[in-house]
Amino acid sequence: MSEQQNEQTRAEWPLYEVFVRSKRGLNHVHVGSLHAPDGQLALRHARDVYTRRNEGVSIWVVRSSEIVASSPEEKDPMFAPSGDKIYRHPTFYDIPADVPHM
């Protein structure tokens, strides 16, 4: 393979988003991204880049192109359904202060 072809192969390495569970009982949290030729190598790279000091007990990687996200411009309409339902919060309900364990 010529060097130019190699670099073309390299340019095709997709971007992976990395999620790390810092300890048992906690959610995986997004920590950053990296490039790798496939998921297995992305995991190995993620270990070296994002968990050099015992930051994790489990890693997820996912192709960035596979993530479906809400659009920031649609912020208001997207989240409007939860905005006007104050009865979903416990503070909506008046309970006498002397009722225990409520």
Binding site: E3, T9, E12, P37
Partner: peptide, 19 residues
């Protein structure tokens, strides 16, 4: 960067083979 070409090439080839 130039000397790393073979590493990048090997990683791509291995990923291709696994696929």
């Amino acid at each position: 960067y130039d000397e790393g070409v073979w590493v990048r090439e090997a990683a791509s080839a291995f990923a291709e083979k696994s696929r």
